[in-house]
Design a protein around this nucleic acid. Structure first.
Lengths: 344, 344
DNA sequence: TGTAATCTAGAAACCAGTTGCTTAAACGTG
DNA sequence: CACGTTTAAGCAACTGGTTTCTAGATTACA
C-alpha cells in the first residue's frame, strides 16, 4: 500500500483500499461533481470509510499543483516569531485565522533566513495572501505583480491589494483632545527606543509612527498649544525622554507611541519621583497586555482587532471570488483607565 | 514561457531561458552531482544567470514530492497566533528558527480550524518537526508513529522524539529557597485565572503547572514550612487570590506561575493597599515583558530561551542526519529585581 | 428489441520539481 | 585511426493529487 516516505497514506492507498481508481477518490472527497459526475452511494460510502480508516489527509500543497483552488492563504511579513504578536495585530490575526478557518481555508507561513527581505511572494500556490507587520512599498509591488489577491493589515498596499488600516490620525487627534479636555496643556508625544541599542540605520518607520506623530502636532497647533519638544525623536531611551520632557520641560501628559513603551514611560516617571496620574497622565496606543493588568492601569487607544481580522478575512474571501480590493478604515476608541486624570 | 498561474516562474521557464533541460537546472541549482554528474562552467553560469534574471524560487513543497530532503521543518502545536509567543517559548522559537535558517532550513506552520486537535502530523513532506506549546500524549504518539524526526519544546515526547525541557522543579525549589533566605516564611504559590471566565472543563494542564506547584510544596516541607493554602487552586482571579492569601492569610511572598499573572498579582496587591516589595515580595517564572520594564521591576526565574532554541535546532539537525533523540534539561536562573526584598 | 441518452467510473494527462537511465560528444590510449 | 573511457546533458519516470477525456453499463423510449 503506497505511503509517503514519512508514513502518511496517499490517495492511491485509499483508492486501492476501497477498490476504486484514485480519480474517483479525489472526486468523492472533494465533493466535486462537474458536468453531472456522480457515484453510486455504495462506492461513495466505501471510499469515505477507507479514507477514514487510513485517516487520509490530502497534502494541500500538492493539491495546489493542478487544482485551481488550494484553500490556502499565505501569511507574509512575519519578521520573526512573536514580534508581530506583541504589537497590535495579534488579535486581528487570530480573528482572521478563525474566520478563514470557518470558510475552510488554512493559513500558512514560513519563517525564512533572517537577512532575506521580510517577505517574498509565496513560492507555493495559494489562493491569496495577507501581509501583516512591516513591509516596504517595493515588497508590496512585488506582490502586485504576482497577481495573487492580497490584503495588508496596517501597512501600505499596491493598486491590486486591499488594505485594512486603522485611523491613527483620528486616534491621535482625539487622544490629544481628551487630554486637553482634562485640562492639560503641556502634552508630549513620545517614541522611545526599546533598549539602549541604537536603532538600525536602515530601519523603516512604520506608517503609524508618522501618522500618530503628525496628527499630534496638528491637533496641538489647532488647539493653539505648542508641541512639546522631542516628539520627533526616536533615538532616546525612556529614561532620557522622561528626564527631558517631564522633569525639565514640565509636561503633564504623555501620549506614548504604544503600550510597550508606555510601560517603560510609566516606570521612568515613577523612578523620577513623579506619580501617575497625579503628576503626569499617560495615554498610549494599542490596548494590549499589560495595559489593563497594571497598576495604575493604562488609558489606551484600542484598535478594533477582532473586527479588523474578520473584515480582513471577508475581503480576502471576496477577492478570491473575484471581488475588487478595498480600503477599509477602522477607527480607534479610547479606553479610559487609571493612568489619566484631570490636570492639577 | 511557463509560469505558474500566479505568475512565479517555473524551473522549466529557467531551463528554456538558458536553453537547457530542466533536469540540468535542477542539478545545478541543487549542487547535486551524484555519481560523477558534471556541467561545463559556461552552462552552469548561463543557468545561474537565467535563474537570477527570472528570480526563480523553487516551490519547496513540490520539491518534497520526490526529493528525499525538503529542507523544511514543520512547527506544530500553535493553538493560535500569539498565544504561545506570549509564553516563555518565544525566544526559544526565534533562536531555533534562526539556527535552522543558518543551516538552510525553513520553518513552516499552518493554522488550522480551531476545534481540530491542536496539531496533527504535517500533511506535507518535511524533514523534521518541532512541537511547541501544549500537546497531549496521544498527539505526540501520532507523531511517533509517523516516523518524522521531532523534538518537543517544554512538552512531553514519545520514545522516537527528542525533548528540550526546562527544569521547573529545580527552579521552583531555588525560588522558594531564595525567599526563605530573605527571611520569608509565609510563602505562597499562586496560579490564577487570566480573567473572570472559568477555565474550560477539558483544559489540559501544562506540565509546568504541576512541576512548579509540586516542587513548591516539596521545598516548603523540606524547610519545615507549611505551604500557604490555595497553591492547588487555578479557578480564582488575581483579586480573589490576593484577598485570601495576602490579606487574610498574611503571606509575605508570592511565587507566581508566570509573568502575566505576576503583573496581575502585583496590581491586586497594590489595590489591596499593600506595597511591593515592602509588604509583599513577588517572584515569577518566565522573564518576559514586562518584568524588566515595570516599576517595581519583577524578580523572575529566567528560562534560557536562546540556548534552548539553539539546542533544539541542533538536535533537529542531528536527528535528520540519523542521530538518536535526546532529552535536554535546562536550568533556570533567578534574575533579582525590585519586587523581592527581605521580609520585614 | 434496437437505439439513444444517461450513469458511473477508469485511463491518462497534467502540475513542478527530482532522479535514474541513457546517449552524444570529447578525450585518451595503443 | 580504431576503440574504450570519461564528460556533459537530455529523456523519461516518478511523486500525489486534480481534471479532462473516454468508454462500458444501464436506463429510457420508440
Amino acid at each position: 500500500m503506497p505511503r509517503t516516505a514519512k508514513g502518511s497514506p496517499t490517495m492511491l492507498a485509499v483508492a486501492e483500499h476501497a477498490g476504486v481508481n484514485k480519480s474517483t477518490v479525489s472526486r468523492i472527497l472533494n465533493d466535486s461533481y462537474p458536468k453531472g459526475f456522480s457515484v453510486r452511494p455504495e462506492v461513495r460510502e466505501r471510499v469515505l470509510r477507507a479514507a477514514k480508516e487510513l485517516s487520509f489527509k490530502p497534502n494541500p500543497f500538492v493539491r495546489g499543483l493542478k487544482a485551481k483552488r488550494t484553500k490556502m492563504v499565505a501569511m507574509l511579513g512575519l519578521r520573526d516569531f512573536g514580534w508581530s504578536s506583541r504589537g497590535a495585530d495579534e488579535h486581528a490575526i487570530n480573528a482572521m485565522i478563525d474566520a478563514l478557518a470557518d470558510a475552510d481555508y488554512e493559513v500558512c507561513t514560513t519563517f525564512i533566513k533572517p537577512g532575506n527581505p521580510d517577505f517574498q511572494p509565496p513560492r507555493w500556490r495559494v489562493d491569496a495572501a495577507v501581509v501583516v507587520g512591516n513591509s516596504s512599498a517595493e515588497q508590496v509591488s512585488e506582490l502586485d505583480q504576482s497577481g495573487i489577491p492580497y490584503v495588508t493589515v496596517n501597512g501600505p498596499a499596491g493598486p491590486a491589494g486591499g488594505s485594512v488600516i486603522v485611523d491613527d490620525a483620528h486616534g491621535a487627534e482625539s487622544a490629544v483632545r481628551k487630554l486637553i479636555e482634562l485640562g492639560h496643556t503641556r502634552i508630549a508625544y513620545l517614541y522611545s527606543a526599546f533598549d539602549a541599542t541604537p536603532p538600525a540605520a536602515d530601519r523603516v518607520a512604520h506608517a503609524s509612527e508618522i501618522d500618530r506623530r503628525d496628527a499630534y502636532v496638528a491637533a496641538m497647533q489647532e488647539a493653539g498649544l505648542e508641541p512639546v519638544a522631542g516628539y520627533d525623536r526616536t533615538d532616546w531611551t525612556a529614561e532620557q525622554a522622561i528626564e527631558q520632557i517631564v522633569v525639565r520641560d514640565k509636561a503633564t501628559a504623555i501620549l506614548s507611541y504604544h503600550h510597550v513603551m508606555a510601560v517603560q514611560h510609566v516606570a521612568a516617571i515613577q523612578r523620577a519621583g513623579r506619580r501617575v496620574p497625579d503628576d503626569v497622565s499617560v495615554l498610549c496606543f494599542n490596548d494590549a497586555f499589560p495595559t489593563a493588568e497594571m497598576h495604575p492601569s493604562l488609558t489606551a487607544m484600542s484598535l478594533p482587532g477582532e473586527a479588523m481580522g474578520r473584515e480582513t478575512a471577508r475581503m480576502i474571501l471576496d477577492m478570491i471570488e473575484g471581488g475588487t480590493p478595498k480600503q477599509m478604515l477602522f477607527s480607534e476608541s479610547l479606553i479610559l483607565r487609571e493612568s489619566t486624570a484631570r490636570c492639577r
